[in-house]
Amino acid sequence: MSRADIVKRQLEAISAEADVEMAAVRAALPALTKEELREHLRRFILYKFLLDPDCEEEDIRRLSQMSIEKLLAMSTRDLNTSDLGIGCGGTSSVDNKIILLFMALGRELEITMDPLRTPSLKTVPLLTEEVYTLLKEAGRVL
């Protein structure tokens, strides 16, 4: 197995861990507490961003930057699955990761996140508040 294949398998495994966190959120509904949601979201973000699950940083932009730094530290040859950002109109990799993260989150939890509110969800607690409110408005938490 090539080194690139090994890295790819590692990334898929980490991605699966992120899926587990979302599955846990869905399973905990409707009794899910805000604290539980926050912990699942925190771990979901860390897995999605390929960061250490013990990382205590809560600023989502900073986490995205750390993720990019980690990706850049890997050899580009190893990163066929890299999600370094590309885009029309000046998308930065950091922005790209955050937007894709939120879109994935909305899809996993079947909630409609307002894209215009993206910049205001700067931290894990703020994101938790937003997601919890959306779940509540949809009658999916008590």
Partner: peptide, 14 residues
Amino acid sequence: DELKKEYDLALDAM
């Protein structure tokens, strides 16, 4: 997702 309207709007907002 990068080709969706929601992505553009989120990016514009950021």
